[in-house]
Design a protein around this nucleic acid. Structure first.
Lengths: 200, 200
DNA sequence: GCTGGACTTGATTGAACATTCAAACAAGAG
DNA sequence: CTCTTGTTTGAATGTTCAATCAAGTCCAGC
């Protein structure tokens, strides 16, 4: 591995710690002990804790392709299956974390009650990029969906189902809640495909 | 109004403050200044801050009928419309809060990363009561839904749509995200009702 | 009107926290 | 070697916080 700059070390550690413990419950001291840096070095790179958060959100934003989509879509071509392959990626993370997994963006979005405009914009942008990826799948599905389908709304609904499913799975410590959300979404897509067929 | 006991005062203030600022960001001092009590009185009633949280979650659990369902369902009889009336209640709260509204239970569920078992059980119970209420609506809808409909899964999906919609509306500071989630859910119900009819 | 138990007062404690800064260090340019 | 610029060190600062407790008040029952 290439030697990491302090900046990269901090962002990397913060991504993990914010995900694990949340933003407010992660102290600067946590970040320092994890990165083996001194407080002065951290504050040389990031003027405040909030700037670390901004760095983390930018990293998620810039890494969505390599970190999220490519791993999930490696072996999948069918556009609608790509959507469920992505959801299955989340399922894996839920199981691997013993059902403590929370979407990093969703958790931050709900934890930060009065976010700075820049932070809120980055949260929104992360959601926007996610749904945009789903939207391209829906566009690729073409005539399999009814002609009047609102792709943007449906893509947002996929995010809705994911976030809601993750939240319930975590609260109940049981993947089955996530699975049921995905199954319902699957049923919805099936009904849409049937509706598209019968009108053709 | 009847004179409130210190306990009621604290729970009432904590419901509002936890909702407004979150659990971690609400200090005991915040609760004391809001309730005009002294720290000793608070600690006489609740041995720790977490016990205040438990009191709040119990209050939500015990108040779901009067606080949530009855106001939303006052004028509605149709079982499926009752579901959307409840969602419309959330819509009102989103608008009234300038799109800063977050479901109190959902926000706490995501904010608390390593909750005490009792706290987690109460969060889960709150979700469970909510979906149980939806489930009775689905049962009342009877043959309007396909015979093989999984009422529990569908009720959980309604919660999923609500939580996901609220999260996105808040992040983007725009009710339209909630509205689109509800519209998608409405479309899903419409497809289910059509499927039930065509099989009849 | 006295006693005992329940509640209240509010200053205090000690830990945790984000942030600062003067001093040290590294290394490339002249 | 020396100056300069960028980086690192880590002890120190001031604040905030949850929680404590000895002393005081209140009132019910006798």
């Amino acid at each position: 591995m290439a030697p990491q700059s302090p900046r990269d070390k901090i962002v990397h550690a913060a991504m993990e710690l914010f995900w694990l413990k949340g933003y407010n419950s992660t102290s600067i001291a946590d970040l320092l002990s994890r990165t083996q840096l001194n407080s002065g070095s951290l504050y040389h790179v990031f003027p405040s804790k909030q700037d670390v958060l901004i760095g983390v959100l930018e990293a998620y934003r810039d890494g969505i392709q390599e970190m999220l989509l490519e791993p999930a879509w490696g072996a999948v071509d069918d556009p609608i299956e790509k959507i469920f392959a992505l959801l299955n990626g989340y399922r894996t993370m839920i199981v691997e974390s013993d059902c403590t997994y929370g979407c990093p963006i969703g958790s931050l979005a709900l934890e930060l009650h009065e976010p700075d405009p820049q932070v809120r914009a980055l949260l929104a942008q992360n959601f926007e990029n996610w749904t945009a990826a789903i939207e391209t799948c829906l566009a690729d599905a073409g005539r399999r969906l009814p002609a009047n389908t609102d792709h943007r709304a449906l893509a947002q609904f996929v995010l809705t189902a994911m976030e809601g499913g993750v939240m319930q799975a975590r609260t109940h410590r049981d993947v089955a809640y996530f699975d049921r959300a995905v199954a319902q979404l699957r049923a919805h897509f099936k009904l849409l495909e049937e509706a598209a067929k019968s009108k053709a």
